[in-house]
Computed example of a mutant assay.
Amino acid sequence: MAWSTRQLAELAGTTVKAVRHYHELGLLDQPERAANGYKRYGVEHLVVLLRIRRLAGFGLSLAQIADMERTGEPPAEALRLLDAELAEAVERLRRIRAELAEILARRLPPELPAELAPVAGRLSHEDRSLALVMTRVYTPEAAEAYIDLLRDIEPHPVDEVFMNLPADADERARRGAAEQMLPLVRGVLADYPALDRSGLPPADAARTGEVVTAMMRVLCNPAQLDVLKRVGDRLAEEREPPRGTWPDTRPAGADSREEDEEPAP
């Protein structure tokens, strides 16, 4: 029994192009040709082709299959690695299905982490957009803290003051909003320290900062951005001493003169 290239490809469930590619790689021997010049494949070619298709279906590369064909032994290490990769893929798919089940059951916004399910209903479109970005660019520790914050935080009068601040708010209104917001932000950073400076990945802090800044410019008007900057500047001043000075770590009441300085006569 002999088959043409097209017939062989159809029997193996592949394409003529794939058969020719296997010839080029040396995976499949060239068949003899009939008197009219056409290739004539036999059972041995079909067996090899089916074996290639079987191993490729497992996820082995053509290079790995070529090694196995050359040595005549199955690539045990490659198969073990493949099995480990498949186990990870199965676990990932299991987690995805569990999240999808929760999203469908609770009719949740699919872009939000499943941990935000309890509070998804009270998050505005802007809050959801911000959560989506922050949980992506923050470090894992900071992202977890941010999710905890969204779940735990209760509405505060300062939120309404900030959200209702008009774009053309005057200096007094901006300063007042910043003064009201400062204690609230201090409390948040005290309760969720991972949201402080460690929130941005050190290796990519510049680009991450640009993403966060761009996001805030979309969500906030100029006056609100100014308030956020004032709060950030004040917190930075509280964390660090003024330039050119050093914090005095001596006990209270200690003499300001050097210890080895002789007393004045």
Rank of each mutant, 00 (worst) to 15 (best):
A205T: 11
V185P: 00
N164G: 08
A223R: 10
A145G: 01
A177W: 02
A167F: 08
R174L: 05
D148Y: 02
V188Q: 09
P157S: 03
V137F: 00
S198A: 15
R172P: 00
Y192D: 03
L165F: 08
A194E: 15
V185C: 01
D196M: 05
R136Q: 13
A214C: 11
A206I: 10
G209E: 11
E154V: 11
D204M: 08
T135L: 08
R151C: 14
M181W: 07
Y192P: 06
Q224D: 14
R151H: 02
A169H: 09
R186F: 04
D191R: 15
E141A: 15
Y146D: 00
L165W: 10
V227W: 11
Y138D: 10
V161D: 01
G199V: 05
D191Y: 01
P157D: 02
A205E: 13
M215F: 11
R175M: 02
G187D: 14
D196L: 06
V158Q: 04
L184G: 00
D191I: 02
S198M: 04
E171W: 07
L182D: 03
L184A: 00
S198N: 05
Y146M: 11
A214R: 14
Y138H: 14
P157C: 09
Y138P: 03
A167D: 12
P155K: 05
R136C: 10
E154C: 07
L149C: 04
P201M: 06
D152Y: 03
L200P: 01
V211Q: 13
L165I: 09
G199H: 09
P166R: 12
T213Y: 09
D226M: 09
R151D: 06
M181F: 05
P201G: 08
T135E: 03
E210Q: 15
A206C: 04
R151A: 11
R217P: 04
L149S: 04
N221K: 13
L150A: 05
V185A: 02
L219Q: 14
L195E: 04
D226N: 10
V212P: 02
Y146I: 00
A177K: 00
E154S: 09
H156M: 02
V137S: 11
N221M: 12
A177P: 07
A142H: 02
Q180W: 05
V227Y: 13
R151W: 02
P201L: 06
D170F: 00
A143P: 00
G199F: 03
